[in-house]
Design a protein around this nucleic acid. Structure first.
Length: 488
RNA sequence: GUCCCCAUCGUCUAGCCAGGUCAGGACUCCAGCCUUUCAAGCUGGCAACACGGGUUCGAAUCCCGUUGGGGACACCA
């Protein structure tokens, strides 16, 4: 059987380094077995998916040299397929319509949780007479489609790395497979597409192990032969709790790595180190070298911590060993000194320049991955440190939602925030100058932010929050609520 | 809370499946050498089999339990 694998990112945010990790493993496996690597965009969440995010993910994968052989396929363009497969499930009773309202479901979940019961759906609609179900659907009553799970026995799964995994069927929820808006959920779309695209090995994150019974049930109900499953350990944060890699504690956006001055080969190599380690010997290797002798079975099961120090060391070796001085000069120019970027910076510096010798002092913060920020400089008279941290956090959330990252747009956000918080624009922006440049007085803030770009800006804000002592999880929750209220 | 997964230096890992070397390498850190400084390079050093039971002549390796960590429990993926 030909090897066909896929990476299936969801375009709901920045291109995540975890996506690159999944893509790398899939691609390495495909190449090592003469197989095909497919790219599929899982844009079935209409509220959160965006074309901008999709484009960013494609760019990021190309930048890394993770080229796909087929695709990108877009799930939003395959809705008829999912619908017709759902009709088959409905016809033979493997799935059923659910007319329960969101309110009822929320209520039920709250209650179950409070009583520490299994929090799943209570299956009220499962035994609705077919005639009634048909009638209500025909009358246009909103509904979802749920998969009817077995109620007894055991689901026996097989994972390439872990072997056999067993789970009681009765512990598995009647998952919604088609939403009220006619879009499939992940589970349905993924199974239908994996079959339709002839995927032989599903290599994905460990977070999906718990959904595997649902997927196996779907494969069976649809009469498909299931592929081989291989669940990869999740990349972890470098903090005390070792939670799965998140942007709160670590840079996770692939574009951040690019903008902070990492080389694609080094990042790829670093990710490769986590899935293929040579006993002794060279840790610097190319994609081709990784592919040569790549074995899925060799991946170790512990969730690896993303160690930026080691990445830096590797990156340094690439910089030293793969370029002569001329080549490096080109690299630096392409990275930060393109004519356009330089001209934008010059426009900001010009009024503040007495000699060309001032250039370096004035603009250096635009040419580094991160400035040094000390806590004292972040202070504003009349504001507590915690308040400053909160304004940073509010702006961070605002900017995370922003697709259009220009000086004007950024300025609009600052003005809005200063109004709703009742702060002067001056007091609000003051700490941001320090966060961006390390200095209280520097080039115009909004334009500087545009030049730095969203990833560097957000990373700098996060650093500033950390410099102020961070925000506890509890307070973060409260802030989030307040932010939602302010943002409307 | 319930279920699932995982467990070797601070970190990434080799060794485990086919029990038997002072548990190997790399990053970080420290020291020395080299050197006009720094970096790089070279040499050396610190540092781990989570714990408790079994099985065995012998356990990092096989089995069970405990602890710890992670993940999942959505009309998100």
């Amino acid at each position: 059987m030909p090897v066909r694998v896929r990476v299936a990112p969801s375009p709901t945010g920045d291109p995540h380094v975890g996506t690159a990790y999944q893509a790398l493993v899939n691609l390495a496996f495909a190449r090592s077995r003469g197989g095909v690597f497919v790219l599929r965009i899982e844009d079935t969440d209409r509220a959160r998916s965006s074309r901008e995010s999709e484009a960013a993910i494609l760019d990021a994968l190309r930048w890394l040299g993770l080229d796909w052989d087929e695709g990108p396929y877009r799930q939003s363009e395959r809705l008829e397929l999912y619908r017709s497969e759902v009709d088959r499930l409905l016809a033979d009773g493997s799935a059923y319509r659910c007319f329960c309202t969101r309110e009822r479901l929320d209520e039920m979940r709250r209650e179950n949780r409070a009583q520490q019961r299994f929090p799943g759906y209570d299956r009220r609609c499962r035994d609705l007479p077919v005639a009634e179900s048909e009638r209500r659907a025909a009358a246009g009553e909103p509904h979802t489609i749920r998969l009817a799970m077995p109620t007894e026995g055991e689901c026996v799964m097989r994972d390439l790395l872990r072997g056999e995994i067993r789970r009681e069927w009765e512990l598995i929820d009647d998952q919604v497979i088609l939403k009220a808006d006619g879009y499939p959920t992940y589970h349905l779309a993924c199974v239908v597409d994996d079959h339709a695209m002839g995927i032989s090995h599903v290599i994905r994150g460990e977070e999906w192990i718990n959904s595997l019974p649902k997927h196996l049930r779907l494969f069976e109900a649809l009469g498909y032969e299931p592929p081989v499953f291989c669940h990869l350990p999740l990349l972890r944060n470098n903090d005390a709790n070792r939670s799965k890699l998140s942007k709160r504690r670590n840079p996770t956006s692939i574009t951040w790595f690019r903008d902070a001055g990492f080389l694609p080969g080094a990042l790829l190599n670093f990710l490769g180190l986590m899935v293929s380690s040579r006993a002794e010997g060279e840790e610097k290797f190319s994609l081709d070298q990784l592919v040569d002798g790549f074995r899925l079975e060799d991946i170790s099961l512990g969730g690896p911590v993303f160690d930026l120090d080691k990445l830096r060391w590797l990156n340094a070796r690439y910089l030293r060993e793969d370029y002569d001085a001329d080549g490096l000069a080109d690299l630096v120019r392409d990275w930060s000194m393109g004519q356009e970027r330089l001209a934008a910076i010059a426009a900001l510096a010009q009024p503040r320049l007495e000699t060309l010798g001032d250039w370096g002092r004035l603009t250096s913060f635009l040419f580094v991955d991160a400035p040094t920020v000390d806590r004292e400089k972040l202070a504003v008279k009349g504001l507590e440190e915690t308040q400053i941290a909160e304004t940073f956090q509010f702006m961070l959330w605002t900017l995370e939602r922003e697709q259009e990252f220009t000086a004007d747009v950024v300025q609009g956000h600052f003005r809005h925030l200063s109004e709703v918080l009742g702060l002067s624009l001056r007091d609000l922006t003051r700490p941001f100058y320090v966060a961006m440049s390390g200095e209280a007085a520097s080039l115009p803030l909004f334009q500087s932010m545009e030049i730095l770009g969203p990833d560097l800006v957000r990373a700098r804000i996060r650093h500033a929050i950390e410099a102020l002592g961070g925000i506890s999880g509890k307070r973060m929750k409260k802030l989030q609520k307040r932010f939602e209220a302010l943002a409307g």
